[in-house]
Design a protein around this nucleic acid. Structure first.
Length: 202
DNA sequence: ACATTAACGATGA
DNA sequence: TCATCGTTAATGT
């Protein structure tokens, strides 16, 4: 199976999978960071997932054999592993441990989005930004995320569903509370526990 | 109240 | 030089 995996590099800003593309592969991020987003007819953008190093994604379209409902874009220079759909399905059918692992992944992702809805409904904007940021450090989903990630405030804002200006204010508050340290085009998580606690405040 | 967009200058890579 | 950041003003709900 290892020989069927291909590895491709993407420069920042380039498209990994176009929207409506056929689901030819299941993919994993080896280096860098991707985002999953949708664009409406009017051109409004909704980013719904950041995909850091260590994450696998795209199995939904593969399982349904439907065109990808979102675009996948590299936020930084990235390296992506691609497993052909046929190999993914064979693995799923033949390997019980793999199937269990995949169920665990899907369950962890569901838990993430359930908690995200709660934060968006009950939390203030700082909590929303804190939750979106902490989500990139979900140990069940992305075991390899580095403490410092390259991500602009603009992109984190898109991920959080708030404007860049509000994101900037929220991040400064998180820094005041010693949860993170801000850099130029990057964010370093100092205390993930504190960040997660702030994400639960309302 | 509090968020959004637009706009500005400052600054880092 | 260009992306990014920090801030303010005007506007909307």
């Amino acid at each position: 199976m290892r020989k069927t995996i291909t590895v491709r590099s993407f420069t920042a800003g380039s498209t990994v999978f176009a929207r409506s593309a056929p689901p030819a592969h299941w993919a994993g991020v080896m280096e860098g960071m991707l985002k999953l987003d949708n664009i409406t007819e009017e051109g409004r953008v909704s980013t719904f997932a950041g995909v850091p190093s260590g994450a696998w994604f795209g199995e939904g379209s593969v399982l349904k054999d439907e065109p990808r409902p979102y675009a996948v874009t590299a936020l930084t220079d990235s390296v992506v592993a691609l497993l052909p759909r046929s190999e993914f399905l064979r693995l799923l059918h033949e390997s019980h441990p793999f199937a269990l692992w995949l169920i665990g992944q899907l369950n962890a992702r569901l838990a993430h989005y359930v908690a995200q809805v709660q934060t968006d409904r009950l939390g203030d904007t700082t909590a929303q930004v804190a939750y979106s940021l902490s989500g990139l450090f979900n140990d069940a989903l992305f075991p390899n995320t580095a403490r410092r990630i390259t991500l602009s405030q603009e992109e984190l804002g898109r991920l959080s569903g708030v404007s860049r200006q509000v994101t900037n204010r929220a991040l400064q508050e998180l820094q005041e509370r010693d949860a993170i340290r801000l850099g130029y085009g990057s964010i370093e998580v100092i205390d993930l526990k504190v960040l997660q606690a702030i994400a639960r405040e309302g």
